[in-house]
């Protein structure tokens, strides 16, 4: 379970988060939607422990990660997996090396065991043939799938996706959505997907929250959000929000 309580963040004089409250239940696939520049990625970086808030708390299970440091924070991060917006793959490593990287750094598995696991994950995202290529030699969609494989190889309990389909063509976006959906069916992970891809994202999530003006203005199932009477939500869904 993830619970964000009254979260505030300011950069200089610009207030990005102005008291965000959010609750994601275990095993739920949750979408955080909102226009560009509304602080979705900033909120995500707080939840995964990359940023510290000015005020508020973020509970992951029973631990408030805003107050944790060192070993205890690392123990929480070990339970999380993140697929960054542009993949954040190590550009000097091959696809295989990128996926093997967390295992090499964090486990004592033998080279043969690592190879077996990496091959399995690469096969799952249909990139086994491209394992010797470098990130610069593959497409944006492939990079996101490699990032997903790198993230899943450590069996995280909670997985975060930052704009998983932004900038991809509809066919690749559908592949990514299908991968996320089959992942949910097989592993029952808790997932938070940050996106502004409407209505595509509604097909794969259990609940949706909309972030606008530094606050969550609406939460509900995809159907509830689509039927929302909130004028800002309706404007966003119709693509009329500035």
């Amino acid at each position: 379970m993830i619970e964000v309580v009254d979260l505030y963040k300011k950069f200089g004089r610009q207030e990005i988060l102005k008291g965000v409250n959010l609750r994601i239940e275990k095993g739920q696939t949750f979408a955080l939607i909102g226009g560009s520049g509304n602080g979705k990625s900033v909120l995500l970086k707080h939840i995964i422990g990359l940023m510290k808030p000015d005020k508020g708390s973020i509970m992951i299970g029973t631990e408030d990660i805003t107050r944790l440091r060192g070993r205890r924070l690392r123990a929480i991060k070990d339970r999380l997996g993140i697929v960054f917006q542009f993949g954040a793959l190590f550009d000097s490593l091959t696809i295989y090396e990128n996926v093997a990287f967390p295992l090499k750094e964090k486990t004592k598995l033998s080279e043969a065991q690592i190879k077996e696991k990496v091959f399995k994950e690469l096969e799952a995202v249909q990139l086994l043939e491209d394992r010797d290529k470098y990130p610069a030699q593959i497409s944006g969609g492939m990079r996101k799938r490699v990032a997903l494989a790198r993230c899943l190889i450590m069996n995280p309990e909670i997985i975060f996706f930052d704009e998983p389909t932004t900038g991809l063509d509809p066919v690749i976006a559908k592949i990514i959505y299908n991968t996320i959906r089959s992942l949910q069916e097989k592993r029952r992970l808790t997932a938070l997907i940050v996106s502004h891809e409407i209505p595509g994202i509604f097909q794969i999530v259990d609940r949706v929250a909309m972030l606008h003006g530094g606050k969550i203005i609406s939460t509900g199932t995809p159907e509830e959000i689509q039927a929302s009477t909130n004028p800002t939500v309706q404007k966003f869904l119709k693509g009329e929000l500035e």
């Binding site: 970086k45 422990g49 990359l50 960054f84 917006q85 793959l89 190590f90 550009d91 990287f101």
Partner: peptide
């Protein structure tokens, strides 16, 4: 610097490294 702007440092951090 390139690792920073392409979120590779964030990726390391998120792997608890």
């Amino acid at each position: 610097g390139i690792m920073r702007i392409s979120e590779q440092i964030d990726a390391l951090d998120s792997m608890a490294l």
